[in-house]
Design a protein around this nucleic acid. Structure first.
Lengths: 302, 302
DNA sequence: TTAGTTTTATGAATTTGTTTCATGCTTGGT
DNA sequence: ACCAAGCATGAAACAAATTCATAAAACTAA
C-alpha cells in the first residue's frame, strides 16, 4: 500500500473545494487526473474514500480518517520546506562549535550570547568531548566550527584568523618571581604549575616554553575552572600561564601579577576553522566578526 | 518542491542501514535507484541532505531535520494503514445512528452500552437533529443506521426487522378511562394528550388511531422526557400513548394503568435501515442482534 | 419526463518519473 | 600504490501519472 503526499494533498483539496472538478483547478491538474488518482488510491487501500451517490464527491468515513491525517501532516511538511528555504538563504542553520583551547570558553560565551540575539533561529551549541579530533569532526560535519591555534591545510576547510593573544605568567604578588620583569623556562623548575586538565600539547606554556627548553616544573596541578586557578595563584599556592584576556577579564583578584614569557613575550594567533561550504553563510560571517571583536574588548580590559 | 513518502522511507532506511548500499537492500531496490533518488530529492529541496566526505553516506544537519520528520510521520502512516486494514476486515468502523422514533432512545442506550464492550474500536454515535430526513442521510453516508418503523424500497438500503411493540394508552389509575378494557379514538376527544415534541406523522397515536379516525384531542402538550411524561400522567394531568417497553421499564411509577388501543390492540414493527455495503460487516451484525434481544428483555419487564 | 447542465468516469496516448544495468569514480585501508 | 567498499552517473527499460477526448451519471428546471 503506497499512500503518497500527493494523495494527502488531493484528499484535502477535494474536501476543501467540495468536488473533484474544483479541486482539480486548485491543484492545477485536470479533473481527469484527479479521478484517476482517486481511483488508484482506493484500489491501493481497498477502501472507498468517497461517497459517489451524491453529485459533488464527498468523503466517506474512511476518507475522513485520511483527511484527518492530511490535516496533521501537510502543515508539518510545509514547516519543513520553510526550514529548508531558510537553510538555503542562510537565515537559519546549525552552528556546533568545538573548542581546542580550554581557556577559549572565557570569550566564547559572550560571543555566543551576542550572536544568539541576532540569529535566534540558528541552532547554536558547543560540543564538548571531541576537543581531541576536532578537525576530522569538522570535515564529517559533526561540528561546524573549530577554534584552533594550529592552522593546517585541509581540502574544503578554511582557517580564518580571529585575534592574537599573549600567554602570560601569573603569580601572587608575594611570589619571588614577581620581582622579575619577565620569566623564562628555567624559572618554572621549582614551581608548582597550575594548568587546565588537558594534554600538554594543548597548553601554551609547554608548547611555547617548557617543552622546547626541556624544563619540567616541580609539580603540575590540573584545575578545571579559570576562576579557581586565579584564586589558587592569588593565594600563592602555585603559578600559572594564561592568555592575557583571561587575566584581564577576571581582574577582581588583584593579589596577583602578570609577567611576559621571555623578554619579548610570546604572541599566538587563534583561528576559526570552518568548512568552505559554510564560508558564505551570513550567520557564519557574523559570528566570525563577533569572535574578532569581543575578545579584543576583553583584552583591553572589558 | 515535492517531498514524498518514498523519500521519508529512504532517509530513514539510509540512516538505519548506515549507508546507501545496505539501505537499498532494505528497500528492495538497487543502490543506483537510491542514489538517483537522493540526488533528485536534494535537487528538489536545494539542500545537501548527506555528507559525502565520509565513505558510508551520513546525514547532514538538514538531513537530520528531515529524518526527524520521517520518524514522526511514518508511524502515523502505518497506523492509518492498520486502520484501513481493520476497516476492510470489519474489526473497526463507524456506526452513527439516526433514530426516527423518539422513544427508541430508551432501549438504544442499553444496546449501545453492551455493544461498546464488544467493539471498542468502532466509532459509535447517535446523531440528533437529522431525525427528519434520516434515510437520505443514510444514503449519503452521513449516518450508518436508521431506526425506523416505515420500511421503504431504496436502492442500496436494507430494512432489517428488529422487534414488534405495542403502543399502549397510559393514564392515571384515577382517570375515568382507566375503567375501560381498551380505548378507542373517540375517547381522546376530551383529553389532554401528552406526546414527545415531534411531528404527528411520527407519533403512533396519530398515525394509527386519531388521524385515520379524524379525531382531535382537546389539547396536546409536548414533553421531551419519557420519565416526565409518566410523571404527569401518574398525577392525572393528562394521558399518553407510549410503546409498551417504555411503560414496563419505568415501572417505579405505579400510579398509572395501561390499556390497549382498540379492542385488538395495535402492533407495530421497528426496523434498522442500513446500507447494503455494511450488511456484511461483523460489528453491524452484532449490533442488530443486540437490538433484537435487549428491547424484548425490556418488554418482558426488565 | 425530457432536455440541459453539471459533475464524475474511462480509455488511449502522452508525458513524466523511477528503476535497472553497466560502469566509472572516490575514499579508506594495507 | 593497490585493492576493496561504497557511491555516482548515463542510457535504456520500465512504470506511473497526466492529458485529451468523450462517455456516463446525477441533478435541475421546465
Amino acid at each position: 500500500m503506497h499512500i503518497e503526499f500527493r494523495h494527502l494533498r488531493t484528499i484535502r483539496a477535494i474536501h476543501q473545494a467540495g468536488g473533484l472538478a474544483r479541486a482539480a483547478d486548485l491543484l492545477n491538474i485536470t479533473q481527469s487526473a484527479l479521478s484517476h488518482q482517486v481511483k488508484g488510491l482506493e484500489d491501493q487501500v481497498g477502501v472507498e474514500l468517497f461517497v459517489r451517490r451524491s453529485k459533488p464527491l464527498k468523503l466517506s468515513a474512511a476518507g475522513q480518517r485520511l483527511l484527518a491525517l492530511a490535516e496533521r501532516i501537510i502543515p508539518e511538511m510545509e514547516a519543513l520546506e520553510e526550514d529548508f528555504r531558510n537553510l538555503k538563504t542562510g537565515k537559519t542553520g546549525r552552528l556546533h562549535i568545538a573548542v581546542e583551547c580550554h581557556a577559549c570558553f572565557e570569550w566564547l560565551f559572550p560571543v555566543l550570547e551576542e550572536f544568539r540575539k541576532a540569529w535566534p533561529e540558528v541552532d547554536v551549541d558547543i560540543r564538548p568531548g571531541l576537543a581531541f579530533g576536532a578537525l576530522p569532526a569538522l570535515e564529517r560535519e559533526e561540528v561546524d566550527l573549530v577554534v584552533s591555534s594550529d592552522p593546517e591545510t585541509i581540502r574544503g576547510v578554511e582557517f580564518r584568523p580571529l585575534f592574537d593573544y599573549e600567554p602570560v605568567f601569573v603569580a601572587s604578588a608575594q611570589h619571588p618571581l614577581a620581582e622579575k620583569k619577565f620569566v623564562v623556562a628555567e624559572d618554572f623548575r621549582d614551581e608548582l604549575l597550575i594548568t587546565y586538565p588537558v594534554d600538554r600539547s594543548r597548553l601554551d606554556v609547554f608548547t611555547e616554553l617548557l617543552t622546547p627548553a626541556k624544563v619540567e616544573p616541580r609539580a603540575v596541578r590540573q584545575v578545571e575552572l579559570t576562576a579557581v586557578i586565579l584564586l589558587l595563584v592569588a593565594s600563592n599556592r602555585g603559578v600559572a600561564v594564561l592568555p592575557d584576556w583571561v587575566v584581564r577579564e577576571v581582574r577582581y583578584h588583584s593579589d596577583y601579577v602578570t609577567r611576559p614569557l621571555t623578554e619579548d613575550g610570546v604572541t599566538k594567533r587563534l583561528y576559526a576553522a570552518i568548512r568552505s561550504d559554510d564560508a558564505a553563510k551570513p550567520f557564519m560571517a557574523h559570528l566570525l566578526k563577533l569572535a574578532r571583536k569581543i575578545p579584543v574588548q576583553l583584552q583591553r580590559g572589558g
